[in-house]
């Protein structure tokens, strides 16, 4: 069974708000679920992966997409 995949529109938010929104969303998801965070603050490309690393989640892809900064992550075990 594949997990849920959700896209979060975090455009217009500045660091660290994108991280906070991702963190709060991930808290309600299960291991294996995925989140695609779409941001306008380029800092999100550093901060969300750093947050993932220390909290045990996995970055599947990060980069620019149509002028936005996107981080695609998979929720790790709690």
């Amino acid at each position: 069974m594949s997990g849920r995949r959700e896209e979060l529109d975090l455009r217009g938010l500045l660091c660290p708000l994108p991280v906070i929104r991702v963190q709060d969303r991930v808290a309600g998801l299960a291991p294996g679920d995925e989140v695609i965070a779409v941001c306008s603050d380029p800092g999100a490309l550093n901060d969300i992966p750093a947050w993932c690393k220390i909290n045990g989640h996995f970055v599947l892809w990060k980069g620019e997409r149509g002028g936005d900064y996107v981080v695609h992550l998979r929720v790790g075990a709690a």
């Binding site: 660290p16 708000l17 991280v19 906070i20 963190q23 901060d47 220390i54 909290n55």
Partner: peptide
């Protein structure tokens, strides 16, 4: 550019909870 709190947590190898 980095978020210093996240960076510190990374250096210490601890979880970080950011609260709004």
């Amino acid at each position: 550019k980095r978020n210093n709190a996240l960076w510190v947590a990374e250096q210490l190898g601890i979880k970080l909870h950011i609260v709004d």
